[in-house]
Amino acid sequence: MLEKLSKWKSSLSSQEIKDELDQANIPKHIAIIMDGNGRWAKNKGLPRIAGHREGMKVVNKVVQKANDLGVEVLTLYAFSTENWKRPKTEVDYLMKLPERFLNNELPKLMEENVKVRLMGSIEELPEHTKKAVLKAVRETENNTGLILNFALNYGSRFELMNAIKKIAKQVEMGTLTPEELNESILEKNMMTAELRDPDLLIRTSGEIRLSNFMLWQVAYSEFWFTDVLWPDFNEKHLTEAIAVYQKRARRYGGV
């Protein structure tokens, strides 16, 4: 098991990354669990919100790099349904970050042809947060480049339960029978209905768990974990993750 985990966290030299990145095999959908902001701040003797502020800057770099590489979808785990348990001051600050990011970066996202998308339960978000994210979705809806998919107030178990309730309602109304239910119908009722499943899942900060993130969708994703804290993550790390991904054989249960 430890040997397998070491492969998930394997590193390549800068030369290997430069020499071996195959532009024809870029993962089409990359999902990232952005973890380690609080620890980054603590290590520097700063308040936790300083880590979140620094982490927001990294989003800019990663979006730009993913777009340059030709990634089609970038899903970022911005705020989970469990994050409400954090101190109110921290939650209040986190709720301001989407607004700040999108207000500052929307012109550039438009210029780069990036389409902003959301998944999660946005009704519980503060009005100022909801207004900012919906504005970004609306103004970028006709863009045809990278899809920047923010998982905001998102939890995979909530998503699955919500999909099951939708399907149950369809059965109740007589538009669907239990015999017709299959994986495709379940996926059409999930928050990622219009997206392909992630090819590559990245988690920063050294934690090796999914934390209720896209549990259905990552069934056959390749995982890459790094000890790097999110505020220290950069374009080189993203490129390394892709280089490791390209060394793996995706068999989907076959041989």
Results as ranks from 00 to 15, higher is better:
1 M>D: 03
2 L>G: 15
3 E>A: 09
4 K>T: 08
13 S>M: 10
14 S>K: 14
15 Q>C: 01
20 E>V: 03
21 L>Q: 02
23 Q>M: 14
25 N>P: 04
25 N>L: 15
26 I>V: 00
31 A>W: 04
32 I>L: 09
33 I>V: 13
35 D>T: 07
38 G>W: 07
38 G>A: 13
39 R>G: 06
39 R>S: 07
39 R>P: 08
39 R>K: 13
40 W>V: 08
43 N>M: 14
46 L>V: 05
52 H>I: 10
62 V>N: 04
69 L>F: 03
71 V>F: 02
75 T>L: 03
76 L>P: 02
77 Y>D: 00
78 A>R: 05
79 F>G: 01
80 S>C: 07
80 S>A: 08
84 W>C: 06
95 M>W: 02
98 P>W: 07
100 R>G: 01
102 L>G: 02
104 N>Y: 06
107 P>M: 11
109 L>V: 07
110 M>N: 09
110 M>E: 09
110 M>L: 15
117 R>H: 10
120 G>S: 01
122 I>L: 15
124 E>G: 07
128 H>I: 04
129 T>H: 03
130 K>Y: 07
131 K>R: 15
131 K>I: 09
133 V>F: 02
139 E>M: 13
139 E>W: 06
139 E>S: 13
141 E>D: 09
142 N>H: 15
143 N>I: 07
150 F>E: 00
154 Y>R: 02
156 S>R: 11
158 F>T: 11
159 E>Q: 12
162 N>V: 03
163 A>W: 09
163 A>P: 05
164 I>S: 10
167 I>W: 12
168 A>I: 13
170 Q>Y: 12
170 Q>W: 10
171 V>Y: 12
174 G>H: 07
176 L>S: 08
180 E>I: 08
180 E>S: 14
180 E>D: 11
181 L>A: 08
182 N>T: 05
182 N>K: 12
183 E>Q: 14
184 S>F: 05
185 I>V: 13
187 E>D: 10
187 E>Y: 10
189 N>G: 10
192 T>H: 05
194 E>Q: 14
194 E>P: 01
199 D>P: 03
201 L>H: 02
201 L>F: 14
203 R>A: 04
203 R>W: 13
205 S>H: 05
210 L>F: 15
212 N>K: 11
214 M>V: 09
214 M>G: 06
214 M>P: 02
215 L>F: 10
218 V>E: 02
219 A>H: 13
221 S>D: 07
221 S>Q: 11
221 S>T: 11
224 W>Q: 09
225 F>L: 13
227 D>T: 15
233 F>P: 06
239 T>Y: 00
240 E>K: 07
241 A>M: 06
245 Y>K: 03
250 R>G: 05
254 G>D: 04
255 V>P: 02
